[in-house]
Amino acid sequence: MIKRLWHIWRHRPHDPPMLPRPDVRHLGLGFAIAVIAALTGLMLIFADAAKRAEVHWQSQIAGSLSVIIPAGSVTDPAEAATTAADVLMTIPGVLMATPMPQDQAEALLQPWFGAKGIETLPIPTVVELETDPGAPPTLEAITRTLKDKGIDALVDDYGHFKTTLARMSGAIRTLTYSAFLALVLTAAALSAFAALSGISTHRHIVDVMHLVGARDSVVAQVFERRYAKLVFKAAALGAGLALVASITIAIIGGHDPFAPSLRLTFGDVVRLVLIPPALALVALVSTRIAALHALSKLS
């Protein structure tokens, strides 16, 4: 395959092109391929960003637990929090137990209930735990220890949040990779269609080539070369646009929580650089299949 790509790509200045110079009709194909390449690049970057965001958020909540003491079960929330924190610190695997200040707990509820009158609500007492990632305590052990000390509490390890996060990230990546696949197939279909159209338009050249003894594979190669080069150039333009767009998004993303994940990584640049040759290869294969099929129908 590499030898074949080299043969198609190599520059032989003494060989005039077998086909006439590309005309304005090729602009349409070039534009479509550039758009496909740009979208493909953005899809890959977003898929990777979604994964990075999931990892980032997962790492933020890894090793963290919340112990929630319902408001109705204690008379003095501050004292209950301190007592619970002392008990929790005795559990192996707990590195730090910090009672959450009441105003901070209220602030967590403000987005749902508003600031006005929130102090009248029964706000639960929260103790934040930092656990040893290597040997974290089990939820059962924490609940049992607290219960043994007469503290009726709920323990939240954010498991539902982690699951939702992983599901969302997976959905985003599945969607982007599906779109990526659809775009690549569209590029293949466009190239094949262009090749068939080219063979039809340049039928007299195909006939002459056949009559002077060219095999179908040689004739097909003329169209492969034409469209693979065109797709490579257009895809390079599209990948460049995707690069500019992703840099712009990362900059104007500002302090958005998703912004850290949108930063352009070396891996993203490598993916963008690989798009033109990858799409050219797709064009090469689809053009060849289409051309050989069309040529086999000719006499």
């Binding site: 005039p16 092109p17 086909l19 006439p20 110079r21 007299h204 050249i205 006939d207 002459v208 056949h210 009559l211 002077v212 003894g213 060219a214 095999r215 179908d216 086999s296």
Partner: peptide, 24 residues
């Protein structure tokens, strides 16, 4: 088909309408 292509190399054809490629 490939055999036909190989045989065609042993045949020279002259057409009434020349069939030359105008861009060459």
């Amino acid at each position: 088909r490939n055999g036909r292509a190989d045989l065609r190399r042993r045949i020279g054809v002259v057409f009434q309408d020349y069939r030359l490629l105008d861009h060459l």
